[in-house]
Every structure is written in structure tokens, then in C-alpha cells.
Amino acid sequence: MDYPKIVKMIPVEKRGAISEKLLNYVLKSKKEKKLTSGMAQCFLLQWQTSTFDNEVGLAVLLETAAVLELEKTTEFLEQECQLAEVAKALKETIA
């Protein structure tokens, strides 16, 4: 499944809070080398032109967070957001 489709599985009312949390994971991650230059550029371009709490932005952020901090991201989605299906789809996509 691609990331925009995973975002569609997330209820609109939860997207803002998820975006906040994932941004913290991404910006505090020490696994920076995992991010390819293309992904870093995609992340910055999205931030330059828009935000991370809309559908397109959250898809970019979700992918970035999954690459950098998969465990934290899926745990957060499962346990705090009660979105086990989203977490599962994310794991399958990144595998």
C-alpha cells in the first residue's frame, strides 16, 4: 500500500495530533543516515510549500517517520491512537 492510501485510513480528526507527534520523532531521531537525500528533499519541499497535517503532507511525514523511527511510529499509532490497521499497513509498506 502506498503512503497516501495509508493516510486515508486515518480519521481526519486525528491527523493534526499524529502530525505533531511524528514531527517530534523525525526531528529528534538520531538515525538521520537512514534518510535518503531524495526523501530529505521531499520532506523539505513539502514543508516549504505547505504543512504536514494535510493529506499530502501527512503522507510525506508518515514515510519519513517510518524510515527513521518505525518502532516508535507504529507503537504510537497502535497504542495511543488505537489505529492498529494503520500501523500494520505501515509495517507492510516499509518492509
Binding site: L27, E32, L35, Q41, F43, L44, Q48
Partner: peptide, 14 residues
Amino acid sequence: KEAYWKTVYYAVQS
């Protein structure tokens, strides 16, 4: 002190 894209993220935010 971190990868360039983080500093640039904060620059854009600022």
C-alpha cells in the same frame, strides 16, 4: 549540529 535537513526545517519554520 544535526543533519542539514533538520536545520533547514527550523529555518523554514522560523
